[in-house]
């Protein structure tokens, strides 16, 4: 889900606590904790974890001396090395910045069917990823053979252009090399442990401030993080829910992709309506008629969602994209969303 969906869900979670709503009327900011908790998991990942990760294979091309074949060779050699040593490697692809708003795009592809790594130069793009007209140079493509079997993964070209480039974990699993996109994402930050930790911190902070609602503050913080984690389970890739007991990200419910507009809009709209309903419900006297509110005003949101699922399942039946590819595609989309934000 997009950041705003998680954030507003966290705020909505807080409004289910009547004492928090009453405190808010009296001037408290306790409900803000829900928003913070709602966005915390992605904040930890995209503002901290991604920079701490140490790459083993660093692709850092120069725009004037771009050699696609050399990059493809480096990537293929790295994958072969994992096959030979069974030791995990982190592959990081740096971007090429040309100026304040201009970037030289290139893209890489893991062709798991033919066992090849492919690299090609793209156009010059601005920070909104709009190509500069006629900036696509003629440049030889890179193609290198991979000599170990690969697990199916995201099958399209992954573009490397603006801000920070993507990274991949190359890991030996079930006698094949798995290419795990953006391995620092949805690990410890998206776990029950994080919900517990943030809830405890919120409670402790309010206790220290001598605020009577320290238990409520803790519960709002914990449930807001949990809401984020659970919303992410709706996608193709879940998260490492039981960290530190487990080390692998689970498979999600495969219902939506992170960047899908209608489900995100459904969550934001429903959360806003829940917030207003709860604020009204816990004030006296309530003015909203629940039947009219949920039966009439809310109706466009579930109808839009039904329309989305009907279209999605029809498309899924036709496409039959492998699960791993969908998961990695989801991660690519989510990272892109953060770049665009």
């Amino acid at each position: 889900m997009k950041g705003i969906s998680h954030f507003i869900t966290g705020v909505a979670v807080g409004t289910f606590f009547p004492d928090a709503v009453h405190a808010a009327v009296a001037g408290s900011f306790i409900l803000v904790l829900g928003g913070i908790g709602g966005l915390l998991p992605d904040t930890l990942d995209f503002k901290f974890a991604r920079f701490i990760e140490e790459p083993d294979i660093l692709i850092d091309p120069h725009p004037e001396q771009f050699e696609a074949q050399k990059i493809a060779d480096e990537i293929a050699a790295g994958i072969d090395r994992v096959g030979a040593t069974h030791k995990k490697q982190i592959l990081k692809c740096n971007t090429m910045r040309l100026g304040p708003d201009w970037w030289q795009q290139y893209s890489i592809k893991f062709d798991t069917q033919n066992g090849e790594a492919l690299v090609q130069l793209g156009p010059i793009v601005n920070t909104s990823q709009i190509p500069l007209p006629e900036s696509l140079r003629v440049s030889p493509k890179g193609r290198a053979k991979i000599h170990v079997p690969l697990l199916p993964t995201y099958g399209d070209f992954v573009t490397v252009d603006i801000f920070s480039g993507p990274s991949f974990a190359l890991e030996w699993r079930n006698d094949r090399v798995e290419i795990d996109f953006i391995p620092w994402h949805r690990q410890y930050s998206h776990s029950f442990f994080m919900a517990l930790l943030f809830g405890t911190l919120c409670g402790a902070l309010f206790f220290w401030m001598d605020h009577p609602l320290y238990v409520t503050a803790g519960l709002i913080g914990a449930f807001a993080v949990m809401a984020h984690v659970l919303e992410d389970q709706l996608g193709y890739l879940g998260s490492n829910l039981l960290w530190p007991l487990t080390k692998v990200r689970s498979t999600g419910m495969k219902l939506i992709h992170a960047g899908d507009a209608i489900p995100n809009f459904f969550v934001v709209g429903t959360s806003c309506m829940l917030i207003i309903f709860n604020l009204d419900r816990f004030s006296s006297p309530p003015s909203l008629d629940p039947l009219l509110y949920w039966g009439g005003l809310w109706l466009p949101f579930p109808l839009a969602l039904i329309y989305f699922f009907v279209r999605k399942f029809r498309a899924d039946v036709l496409k039959r994209i492998p699960l791993l590819a969908q998961q990695e595609g989801d991660l690519v989309a989510e990272t892109q969303e953060v770049m665009d934000a």
């Binding site: 954030f7 913070i36 801000f163 920070s164 934000a341």
Partner: peptide, 16 residues
């Protein structure tokens, strides 16, 4: 809440 979102939803543009 709007202020917190504005600040939290600004993502890093460097760090490569």
């Amino acid at each position: 809440v709007i202020i917190v979102y504005m600040l939290m939803a600004e993502w890093p543009k460097g760090g490569d």
